[in-house]
Nucleic acid binder design. Structure first.
Lengths: 352, 352
DNA sequence: CTGTTAGCGCGTTCAT
DNA sequence: ATGAACGCGCTAACAG
């Protein structure tokens, strides 16, 4: 029943049904009224011949492909995979197909994939994670609708539609949680000082009347590609610089690496040092200790990206920049459960 | 530079270059010799006009789309995501694009996606994981090349090209490892008695001259959708039935659930009960204790699927069924490190 | 080596 | 409500 045809065309259907191709087209696409009787005959013919419309031809004619291009660095990355799932789900629901292109974070591969997607006449583009400043103006030159997801560059020179999480809030919630638990020597392992999560960290500290101590801020060495190793090395360095009783690590993988470093130093988590991560990867609930972290609406990122794109198609570009909220997920790595006096503060909590 | 054109066609290029469209086509596609001089002019014109080939039109004409359809249940699943990464990588290298369709494991969604992919005239289909017997003959009706990846039905009535891991070997290696460590009361948590991994378990036992004791075999309740919960419940049941000192769980997520059940019963892993999983998900190295498991060449699964498909395109269908080897990954959950007498046996080992 | 012609399969006029 | 004719952009086949 779901077989492809061996080239039966709309003309064959028309012939068998005793009508002309355009009538078949109308019957299929409800693009003009067709008498019930001919409709019957047409669909019988379709059934009988195993006709399948040729989307290629249709797209060529209609100047739209009903296809979205999804550009990402690596589908195997859990975050990107979740985003892709969100994209796929709503694209499907809206009648669009999605063409994926993986870039391995290489500019050259990205150019190739981009070109390929454009050649295939995708109606819109969703670009995940890869938005270094130098790529942005390349994107800006593209004249089809495009949305960035999970952007890395917070305040770029060129503005493009995007969907992202509220990274500042993420940093704020994480730090705030640590403050609520009574910590004051709170370190941070970040990717840069301008990282929005780092901003949130500062804001929480300042709001609590605490100084932002430079020796408690560590910028992970990005030359190391293994994120866990980055976190490990960062924590080792941090421990040498200053005593700290808690640390916010701007993403889960690095947080897990940091915990490992602590363990190797015979420091207990959370008793000696409390750790909060960011991202809430599915494995965060499975490591030891279970990681307290700030969760992101990963699927929503993808879903919203498609919705934003559809709005762009309609020229009803409402919000050029969609910012999704995130939420603290309290588990074990901060020892909240050890503090009977602690209670959920302002944030929505999900106890796992 | 990577901008899409606002409908400049091959004709526009031809006109500007003072040649005829087919010459431009030849120049681009190296499909016939073109004098160096005209080649120059053509490429200048292309540059100047920002011409991009329209793959849709080309596909229509050539009766091939250079597109592969990838059908999977859920891109967010780590295994499927890895497979997708493998597919994408080699498809790209071979000049193919990939169109994804996610089915959420619903037959209805799968039919829809399948139809959509066929309508888009994909040249071949890669179908991941979803191959229940009742779907197989639907696939069999499809008249374009198709390969199954990571099939679930071991010996189906209808044979189709497929790429899979050596599941029997997986079960064998896992059980064998446990035997090597001196265990004899070895349980198994499986999804069915005909599971190939379960076969491997039996083979290892028999080879060691040990009886296959039915009370040590537990079939997970598939009505529970959460795999960890399945593993948890299975282990609880197993502990009530019979004493066991080790257990092979046919996949990592269920194994993690089983470990949790053990922990809740105050049984230590590996000291009281040793556990081997299967799959080597990336999180296997991160849980406590780090999971000893049988690793699968996940990316290769995808990569080989594409290669097999390409062979099918050439009608050079060598192996209709590709079976990839797997390997034991020794970590902590079996306590191999506690046995100084233990040494790697026949299998290739990768110490993590 | 270059040009001509014809059509891939479909959807759209516009006429009946 | 139905039909005839044209063209979307590209390339295969053949001619020159």
């Amino acid at each position: 029943m779901t077989r492809r045809n061996g080239n039966v065309t709309i003309r064959d259907v028309a012939q068998l049904a005793g009508v002309v191709p355009s009538t078949v087209s109308h019957a299929i696409n409800h693009t003009a009224p067709v008498s019930e009787e001919t409709r019957q005959r047409v669909f019988e013919a379709i059934q009988k011949l195993g006709y399948r419309r040729n989307t290629l031809a249709s797209s060529l004619r209609q100047q739209m492909s009903m296809t979205l291009g999804l550009l990402l660095a690596n589908v195997a990355d859990p975050l990107e995979a979740e985003i892709a799932a969100g994209v796929s789900e709503v694209a499907d629901r809206e009648g669009y197909s999605v063409l994926i292109g993986t870039t391995s974070d290489e500019a050259q591969a990205e150019d190739r994939q981009l070109a390929r997607l454009l050649d295939r006449r995708v109606d819109g583009l969703i670009i995940v994670s890869t938005d270094s400043e130098r790529r942005l103006h390349a994107y800006n030159e593209i004249d089809i609708p495009l949305v960035l997801v999970n952007r890395q560059t917070p305040n770029p020179l060129v503005e493009l539609p995007s969907v992202e999480v509220d990274n500042q809030q993420a940093g704020y919630l994480a730090t705030r949680h640590l403050l609520d638990l009574g910590h004051s020597a709170i370190g941070i392992i970040t990717t840069s000082l301008s990282n929005e999560r780092c901003e949130g960290y500062r804001r929480a500290l300042e709001e609590a009347g605490l100084p932002v101590r430079p020796e408690l801020i560590y910028i992970a060495s990005l030359t190391e590609t293994d994120l866990m190793a980055q976190g490990y090395m960062a924590m080792v360095a941090l421990l040498n610089h200053a005593p700290l009783s808690a640390c916010f690590v701007v993403d889960d993988m690095r947080a897990i690496g940091a915990i490992e470093a602590l363990r190797d130093r015979k420091l207990r988590v959370p008793e000696d040092v409390a750790i909060v991560g960011c991202g809430d990867l599915s494995l965060a609930a499975l490591v030891c200790p279970r990681l307290t972290t700030v969760g992101h609406p990963k699927r929503h990122l993808g879903a919203q990206a498609v919705h934003l794109l559809l709005e762009l198609f309609n020229n009803s570009l409402i919000d050029q920049r969609v910012i999704l909220p995130c939420e603290l997920v309290v588990r074990e790595s901060c020892g909240a459960y050890l503090h009977p006096g602690w209670r959920p503060s302002r944030s929505r909590l999900r106890l796992s």
